[in-house]
Amino acid sequence: MPASTSNYTAANRPTTYPVEYVIIHVTQETYADTLAIFKNPAKKVSAHYVVRSSDGHIAQCVRERNVGWHAGNWSYNTRSIGIEHEGWVDKPQYFTDEMYEQSAALTAAICKKYGIPKDREHIIGHVEVPGADHTDPGRHWDWSRYIRMVNFA
């Protein structure tokens, strides 16, 4: 489900920029609406992946070699892979077992590919990006569970 080429920067990562982080987001939109936003060239936003709540289905929107516009911080955009999760920060029912399982497996594969440590210093929430004005993934995201699943995937 490719994002508009107007919504990311073409690159040749990790040659042009090292990949050092995975940034966890929550869409604040439905899965379908998120994909539509990423396809809209006027929106100027994208992430590498979107994970659907109901079944954990993963859509890739930006190739990992390219720089997604998801962190709100250019330095972190260049050095990270962004994973959006369908849902809202104040609606924990969206954080399903299937979503956690598929997202954790994806994050584990990304960490293995780029040599990223599977810890909270390198797998961070959007809220933890310097200068970020977002609160996602929010207080209902189970970080202990997620990091454990990433390490056992």
Rank of each mutant, 00 (worst) to 15 (best):
H25L: 12
T135Y: 00
W143K: 02
I24R: 02
S75A: 11
G138R: 10
E121V: 07
Q102N: 14
H57E: 11
C111D: 05
L106W: 12
I37G: 00
S80P: 09
E98A: 15
V67E: 03
R139Q: 13
S54Y: 09
T5S: 10
V129Y: 05
Y146M: 06
D133R: 10
C111F: 00
R145C: 01
V129Q: 03
Y114H: 12
V50Y: 00
T16E: 14
V127L: 03
P117D: 05
G115M: 04
I23G: 06
I23Q: 02
T107N: 13
R120W: 01
H70F: 13
A105G: 06
E128Q: 14
K112A: 14
R79H: 14
W69G: 00
R52K: 15
R52I: 02
A104R: 03
D97W: 13
G115A: 07
D119T: 13
E29D: 15
C61E: 09
A11E: 11
A32Y: 05
R120F: 01
I116P: 03
S144D: 15
N66E: 10
H126N: 12
K43I: 06
F38I: 05
V26N: 08
Y17Q: 07
V19S: 06
T16Y: 08
T5W: 04
G131K: 05
Y8P: 09
D33C: 01
Y114Q: 11
H70D: 09
N73E: 01
G131V: 03
N66R: 03
A153D: 01
N40V: 07
V67L: 08
V19A: 08
R63A: 15
E84M: 14
R65K: 15
V62F: 10
H122F: 07
H122C: 03
K112S: 14
G125C: 04
R52N: 01
K112Q: 15
D55H: 03
T135A: 10
E86D: 08
P137D: 00
K43T: 13
E29W: 11
P130S: 10
H126T: 13
V50D: 07
F38V: 06
K91I: 06
E29V: 06
A47D: 08
T96I: 08
M149I: 04
N7A: 09
Y146P: 08
G72E: 05
T107W: 10
W74Q: 11
D90L: 08
H126P: 00
Y146Q: 04
Q60W: 07
M99Q: 13
R120A: 11
A71T: 15
F152L: 13
H134R: 11
T96N: 10
